[in-house]
Design a binder for these strands. Structure first.
Lengths: 226, 226
DNA sequence: GGGGATTTGTGCTTTTCTTCACAAATCTCT
DNA sequence: AGAGATTTGTGAAGAAAAGCACAAATCCCC
């Protein structure tokens, strides 16, 4: 009986569009795994995640060849490989700046504290909030003053930061985070952040999302009238 | 002196990538307008919004020719045109389903209630929440039981729905919304929703965003070690 | 009213992403 | 052990998006 070959890890840049989908596959695989499924075909996994099977297979092919022709993919194995590729086997410390409605929701949000991430610092400018505690996934964390941001973040060795402050102060907070060694930022402020090279920023803009939907609604109405 | 020509509205499909950027331009223009700026060049607007000027001009060109060569764009005029194109001059009624941490933050979030949108209905399955009120932008709204979702939403004539419930019940909620006449859905549950044709779904996946950043961090580390 | 300085709008090129379609690999059954 | 049924992995084609570069339009100033 032939031994399983050495993991055929592929080296080479993974397209951005693919990277953006890996978390979706990962989550679906986790679900399948918890349900006790041992194997899954590209067709099934594609159906669950809402992509085409060809796209899914191509996406996975950038990571390596983890499937078996005529059979499909081993759920647990594939899940592990994606996790490894995405660095989810590490535990990433995350700081959140701004604990208004949204920031607080994020801090409490289970999905954030889940697998791979741990919220280690909360900062706010508002003196009324400083000193109060917020329940994150596992523990309670005290909100620290925004002034301590740079020092504390450096100490906590956080490389990931979440910005949930008003647009007016977002760039300032961003600069502070970068100075503190943060190199990946999730920005909820509706503004373009300027960062030095090597710092990744992803923007999540809730109002924009609604507006995009409004655009589609608008088009539906125009079609009817036309 | 020549009269300004009839608005040269262009007809034809606007690329999805462009649509996704229109809200960003719109916001920047609003800012400029409030700051009292009368004109802006593609170069300036591009800088503010973090795109290249060529891309910006091409994006705008899908809407019509609203600029003046050698001069730039009139801030107020262009802003209005984008708003019109996106349907932001209407007031869209929105319902939110699920008022946990996130749903509540969204309900309170100013940006949602802002220009173009009005939150008209809140629903939750939890009996402890039903009957309590949540301050949205302008008014206070009572949380209604999820069972009333279909009927109430139909009555409220909401075409836009926000899903902020756990993944397990998201598809059920989605079906209810669609039955109630909702044709655009903003989905915060980490799951692919199946909808009939003609219903638009946009997914905002907070955990995915962090995971994508983790991927980039991972790569930075690998580069260093390599 | 003409020349020089701007800045838009867009045809063309390049890059990135998606889809197609099929050979290669594996399994099952007899 | 071979034939038939699956299902992956991937070249190649097609579609969408981004970037380039320049003609066309406008302004300003003399």
């Amino acid at each position: 009986m032939p031994l399983r070959q050495v993991p055929p890890v592929k080296r080479g840049k993974i397209p951005a569009a693919t990277v953006a989908r890996l978390p979706i596959y990962y989550r679906a695989l986790t679900q399948l795994f918890e349900r006790g499924e041992a194997r899954v075909s590209s067709e099934e996994l594609a159906e669950i995640t809402g992509v085409t099977s060809a796209k899914l297979r191509k996406d996975l092919s950038y990571l390596g060849t983890y499937g078996t022709r005529g059979v499909g993919y081993e759920v647990e194995y594939l899940r592990f490989q994606i996790a490894r590729e995405m660095g989810l086997n590490n535990e990433w410390p995350v700081v959140i700046v701004g604990l208004g409605n949204l920031g607080r929701a994020l801090a409490r949000y289970g999905g954030f504290g889940s697998r791979g991430f741990q919220i280690v610092g909360l900062f706010d400018h508002d003196q009324k909030l400083v000193g109060t505690k917020v329940k994150t996934g596992k523990s309670e964390i005290e909100i620290l003053p925004a002034n301590d941001l740079a020092k504390a973040t450096k100490q906590l060795k956080a490389k990931l930061g979440v910005i949930a402050v008003p647009a007016e102060v977002a760039q300032k907070v961003c600069d502070d985070l970068v100075n503190a060694g943060v190199t990946s930022i999730l920005n909820f402020a509706p503004i373009h952040l300027v960062t030095p090279k090597g710092v990744d920023v992803r923007r999540v803009d809730l109002a924009s999302e609604l507006q995009i939907l409004a655009f589609h609604e608008q088009k539906k109405i125009e079609e009817k009238t036309a």
